[in-house]
Design a protein around this nucleic acid. Structure first.
Lengths: 331, 331
DNA sequence: CTGTTAGCGCGTTCAC
DNA sequence: GTGAACGCGCTAACAG
């Protein structure tokens, strides 16, 4: 059975195809009466415009893309992405935009996907996540003329959603207030902007408030790496009395290392996760964690993309530190 | 700057647009020499076909869709979906198919999305998840003529990926072997096929092996529901000595209820989760769980969709029961 | 103001 | 190998 087209409607309503187009898009050029009749007919046969034809004639795909550039196994573990996607998707729905998702191994492939998407006119814009230190992507997008919103950093082009990041000072202040004096930070990938930002903030603020500070080797966010770095910290001459983990998986690796070493939190070592999760809540003792809201972040990015200006920056309030048992030592 | 089209290439290679199309698609009708020249030119200017035009002329969108029909907050919590998506996406990538994702509140909206997608020619096929008892979706898809693969159940139309589900017997046999005699099952939504399947399997097998069996009220998979149902079980006259939870979130609610009641696992009550997670692994005592592989499931579904036949059924091996401390009582 | 006609966008295909 | 028409909706130019 053939597709129902504008021509069919035109025939049924005894007008020309052009008139149907005008009527259905609420554009002037047809009388109210005719418009009604046309809309009536269109509804009765359940007509919906072909996205392909629309995209072709209007050069708009009515869809937004997101590319995640990380090894798949590690993407899978990052629940952050999924929440983020849920937020993005919700706003796109409201605007009747489709959502394209693709996963690739690194930023170069990511840039290649952008090129393809743009050449194929598959998307109208993209959301850029995981800003990098030397980030090739904004330039690629700018060269293509492809609109984008970046998340976590404002590049010299495009719009951006950034979060006030007082994370590190909040965490360190809290630990200091609880009487901890020597803190270590198990961090993530050095290629990611947010890692170097946090490492710098960690160093600086610890120095400012007079805490002993140590930073682990960079990790790839795997559980093994978390366990390994934690083990190294525990065996060092001056063992820290508090450890901050960059995300949920590192925290998991870390606490299992603690358990293996026969250490307990918060009494032997305080544990603080920079990403909250059910695990942090129900672990016993429960684990103090930074409660970000990835879905809101995604929603804000999508909203900025669809409703915002050209080079606009949206600031989101800082996340909340959920203080739990793991950082409350009996004084 | 204008898009580069086939006409441009034709002009540059001194042939007609039709010849370019034939050449670039490796179809007969042009000499090898000409083909080479055309491909050469196309590469040199970095030409990529417009997906819109291709979709319009070929009636193929080169993309596959997935709709998740659940309240967003609850989707967000189900890590299963994200892993599943990772698997799907990987296979789609290999086949150069785009991936469209949409989330809606219920199956009716889901059916509406299918209608729209099909009318708009946005996707060539979809993957159907969460089979329901009275499921309107297969009929809708069949009426539309939209190809699909369903996951978890083979409907009277479409292809399907199903998993050998010996889950319940495995779980119950294990508990019985460990000496537990009275087991309860905290289950999910009654509208989902897999809930009723599991409930039936639970009842049957418990009867067969002579275990006391009890089933909770249906839950919506929320943590609160898990805690509430667990509380109810614990306060009943004949307290079960083992509880099976349908997924990760229910397990979390359940163990927090246990803790609140001052009960310990496995000594007071055995705990078994039908979905594995980092939490199950690092919880102490660790929790016995069914280790499914959502990514493989997604990959299998995508593969069947793209490479499989018309009404084909693929069977996947049963998941593994990871036996941990939570079901090993000191005898 | 109401409506029609022609032609575009871009790749594909079929008759010649 | 070519030219022309097609798929489907949009829109500029035009006629009543």
């Amino acid at each position: 059975m053939r597709r129902v087209t504008i021509r069919d409607i035109a025939r049924m309503a005894h007008v020309s195809p052009g008139a149907v187009s005008l009527a259905l898009n609420n554009k002037p050029g047809v009388s109210e009466q005719t418009r009604q009749r046309i809309v009536q007919v269109a509804d009765s046969i359940g007509w919906t415009p072909s996205a392909a034809a629309k995209a072709l004639s209007s050069s708009r795909a009515s869809s937004v893309g997101l590319v995640l550039a990380r090894p798949r196994a590690s993407i899978d573990e990052e629940h952050f992405y999924f929440s983020f996607i849920c937020g993005v998707e919700q706003v796109l729905n409201e605007h009747k935009q489709a959502f394209l998702l693709q996963m690739v191994d690194d930023v170069n492939e990511e840039a290649a996907v952008y090129r393809d998407w743009w050449a194929e006119r598959r998307v109208d814009a993209v959301i850029l996540v995981d800003p990098r230190l030397e980030d090739p992507r904004p330039d690629v997008l700018t060269a293509l003329g492809m609109p984008f919103v970046s998340v976590g950093r404002h590049f010299s082009s495009g719009s951006a959603v950034v979060v006030e990041d007082s994370t590190m000072s909040m965490a360190l202040d809290h630990l200091a207030a609880e009487g901890y004096t020597s803190v270590a930070y198990v961090c993530g990938l050095p290629s990611l902007q947010h890692t170097t930002d946090r490492v710098a903030a960690f160093r600086e603020h610890a120095l400012r408030i007079g805490m002993d500070a140590r930073i682990s080797n960079y990790t790839n966010y795997s559980e093994d790496a978390g366990a390994h770095e934690t083990g190294a910290l525990l065996q060092s001459q001056a063992r820290p009395d508090a450890i901050i983990f960059d995300n949920e998986i590192l925290t998991i690796g870390g606490v299992s290392a603690l358990t293996r070493h026969g250490l307990f939190w918060p009494d032997d070592v305080a544990v603080l996760s920079l990403e909250d999760s059910p695990l942090c809540r129900v672990s016993s003792p429960s684990i103090t964690a930074l409660q970000r809201d990835p879905a809101s972040l995604g929603a804000a990015a999508a909203r900025l993309l669809l409703e915002g200006g050209d080079r606009e920056v949206v600031h989101l309030p800082p996340p909340e530190l959920k203080i739990r048992a793991s950082t409350k030592r009996a004084h």
